[in-house]
Design a protein around this nucleic acid. Structure first.
Length: 430
DNA sequence: TTTCGGCCCAAAATGGAAGT
DNA sequence: ACTTCCATTTTGGGCCGAAA
């Protein structure tokens, strides 16, 4: 989109907002409550602090950590966060670092758009942190563009308090770079000095993407954390609500925006807890076969093939469709092969052959490699490749793939036959 | 001893998805 | 729309055993 298009878009947005505002005013002339406008401090409890750049308002909510949300309470994080954390932050264990709960900072913003770059402002900056027996949610709010410097100055006071881990959802790509940009644009120092940034989006994807089609925080809340939002405002409406506030200064429609941001922060805590829980004891905690496969893959990435094969075995105990079972067996066989557990791998490959609806050369090739290179049983290698070729010829497979597969299998068969023949010679000679 | 083919792992390219 | 990061796929190099 070029600059002209963009300016036109902004112009038309302005008109729309003006229209909405006019409609409201018209309606309000018929209503007695008409001119009741609320300021932000009236709709959410909080404080105003003085800064060198003017006043800065923040809302504050304090929750006792044993308040429960869905299946967990905030204090559960103490027990579950640390184990399994090294899987995402490898430095954690290597350095032997231990983190205190109070050194974690949960962070989420509401902004004037998704575009990023220097034109997007953070108008609501929510932070969650533990202090003694309390969990604080503090939301810094900017009620007009000129208050940005004050907001950033105020937030810096909190940032300077020695937090070590920043916890976000997609914050690595969105919130954090945006925040940095705002400090640059206002020429202020940036006092947040967390040595680690844990972006929960990525562990979340790896753990649940197989089972859930999308990993938006909302969907994860619903499907994993089992929490329901009441009267939540969808994210895409948030900038519009703020733009209207800038014009009419009625803070009441912002109330759900503050609530949305609070809930996001609470969800960060709960999600970090849940991630810790499922990684600590997947075999007990996790009942879904797809999720167990996901966890197996995570341990595979850390070269723990013994544990990953345990996850896959557990998954195979679940009620699976043939296709799902084949996929799981495939993963499982790979883990066995890595452990040199050839007997188990062989059994898994054979199970794949008997369960598969459609032909795939994969299990045959694996078996052939095993017979040729491990067992040195060329006769068995030969017959498995011949079986594959036989099935390939019978089944209905599109041309280009079929010829590709046949080429590979023929090549393999020819080599095995050569080896077998030579072996025969040396036997008869010896 | 050298060369070649097969296998596996690591680095590099590609694609997709999340935030308001 | 925009950016960034990670996962997946593809490509290339090294290692090993077999053959000359």
């Amino acid at each position: 989109m070029n600059l002209r298009d963009r300016l036109e878009q902004i112009e038309s947005l302005k008109k729309k907002v003006q229209q909405i505002s006019n409609n409201r005013n018209q309606k309000n002339t018929f209503s007695k409550k008409s001119n009741n406008k609320s300021s932000v401090s009236e709709i959410v409890p909080g404080n105003t602090i003085e800064t060198p750049h003017g006043n800065c308002f923040y809302a504050e909510r304090i929750i006792t950590p044993d308040t429960s949300f869905g299946e967990n309470s905030l204090s559960d994080i103490q027990r579950y966060f640390t184990p399994g954390l090294h899987l995402w932050l490898p430095q954690f264990n290597r350095r032997g670092e231990e983190f205190k709960l109070e050194e974690m900072l949960f962070f989420d913003t509401e902004t004037t758009g998704l575009a990023g770059g220097s034109g997007t402002y953070i108008f609501l900056l929510g932070l969650g942190f533990f202090r003694g027996e309390e969990f604080h949610i503090r939301q810094y709010f900017m009620s007009d563009y000129h208050e940005e410097e004050a907001l950033l100055w105020g937030v810096n006071q909190l940032f300077g308090q020695g937090f070590k881990i920043l916890v976000t959802y997609n914050g690595k790509s969105y919130d954090f770079p945006l925040l940095q940009t705002r400090y640059i644009m206002t020429r202020q120092p940036f006092h947040l000095n967390t040595s680690h940034h844990l972006d929960l989006l990525f562990p979340t994807r790896r753990l649940w993407k197989r089972r859930l089609q999308d990993c938006t925080l909302q969907n994860i809340e619903k499907e994993v954390l089992k929490i329901r939002r009441n009267g939540d405002i969808p994210g895409y409406l948030i900038p519009q609500v703020y733009f209207r506030y800038l014009l009419d200064k009625d803070a009441r429609p912002l109330k759900p925006v503050f609530a949305h941001n609070q809930q996001d922060i609470i969800s960060l805590v709960l999600l970090a807890t849940r991630i810790g829980q499922v990684l600590e004891d997947p075999l007990e905690m996790v009942k879904s076969a797809l999720d167990l496969c996901s966890i197996g893959k995570i341990f595979e990435g850390h070269r723990d093939f013994q544990y990953s094969s345990k996850c896959y075995e557990e998954a195979l105990k679940c009620d699976l469709s043939d296709e799902e079972a084949v996929e799981t067996l495939r993963l499982c066989a790979f883990a066995y092969k890595k452990q040199l557990k050839w007997d188990k791998a062989e059994a898994a490959w054979r199970d794949i052959i008997s369960l598969s609806r459609d032909f795939s050369p994969y299990p045959y090739e694996e078996l052939a490699k095993y017979y040729e290179h491990q067992k040195k049983d060329y006769g068995q290698a030969e017959s498995i490749v011949e079986e594959a070729l036989h099935r390939l010829n019978r089944e209905n497979i599109s041309g280009s793939v079929k010829t590709e597969w046949r080429k590979d299998l023929d090549h393999r068969l020819a080599r095995i036959k050569r080896k077998k023949q030579r072996e025969g010679f040396s036997c008869s000679e010896g």
